[in-house]
């Protein structure tokens, strides 16, 4: 992922913008061409109505901005969207996550909470199996979700990191898409937060991948970035054919694995 150089390009643009005499900044359309080239160099991305993004016009907190991504196209359609990049143009590290859907999702919809450093467009870029790209964008006003200082006690954080909680919406309807929420306790350190004790930057420490299976079959997986908020929240759909077991495996950027299992009863 070309996030490193991108981070500096985006920062440079931000700095030049912040020195302009505009008092009230707004989500800038100027960032996307740069961000787009970094992620999808030379590729054509078609705007599409069937990808929808919902979020607040103005975020209450840049640390936990609720957004919902919906693909109005069945995940088993021949031209289904297989994965979606969620990108916050103006974040120092723009990638929030990549969601990989399968027909076992039943419905391709994700609600999550993201970090936003400043006013920005967020882009959802969907990719089909044959590599066609489609996108939609949403401007959100926000402040201060990425940097700042962290003071939390490292040992205490590591002791609880990776703890998971799953809520299945009941009653379970077999053969249909059912909503579920997954919460993962994790600080999702961005690598951009200053550390009071050392005076330096706290190294990035985050959940990098979440894999979900149902009765052994892959339902979806998510590549997470530090643009996803602390204690990652995912509301998603799964389509169970019969009672069984949902397995979740989360892996952090240090390679540590966390697992959780939920029984889905009739």
């Amino acid at each position: 992922m070309p996030t490193r150089p991108l981070m500096w390009i985006a920062s440079a643009i931000l700095i030049s913008l912040s020195h302009s005499p505009v008092v009230f900044a707004e989500a800038s359309e100027a960032l996307w061409p740069v961000v787009k080239e970094a992620f999808f160099a030379g590729k054509n991305i078609e705007p599409a109505d069937f990808i929808r993004l919902e979020g607040p016009r103005r975020a209450e907190s840049g640390a936990q901005v609720p957004v919902t991504l919906t693909i109005d196209k069945a995940p088993d359609a021949p031209d289904a969207i297989k994965k979606v990049y969620l990108i916050v143009d103006a974040n120092p590290i723009p990638l929030a996550a990549i969601y990989h859907f399968t027909p076992l999702n039943g419905k391709a919809q994700i609600s999550t909470r993201i970090r936003m450093e400043t006013d920005s467009y967020i882009h959802a870029v969907g990719e089909t199996a044959d590599g066609k790209l489609y996108m939609t964008a949403l401007p959100i006003r926000a402040a201060g979700g990425c940097g700042g200082l962290v003071d939390s006690d490292e040992a205490a954080i590591r002791a609880t990191a990776g703890k998971m909680k799953v809520n299945l919406e009941e009653p379970i309807k077999f053969g249909e898409p059912n909503p579920a929420t997954l919460l993962i306790k994790h600080p999702m350190f961005t690598g951009l937060q200053r550390d009071l004790a050392s005076g330096g930057y706290r190294p990035a420490f985050y959940i990098q991948k979440v894999e979900l299976t149902y009765n052994g079959k892959p339902v979806m997986h998510v590549d997470l970035g530090v643009g996803t908020s602390e204690d990652p929240y995912l509301r998603f759909f799964y389509r169970p054919d019969a009672p069984g077991v949902m397995d979740i495996k989360a892996t952090d950027n240090e390679g540590k694995e966390f697992t959780h299992q939920v029984e889905v009863k009739g």
Partner: peptide, 14 residues
Amino acid sequence: NRRNVNLLYPLLEW
């Protein structure tokens, strides 16, 4: 109140 919800809800979930 909306900001308070944004702060409290993710904590109370745990």
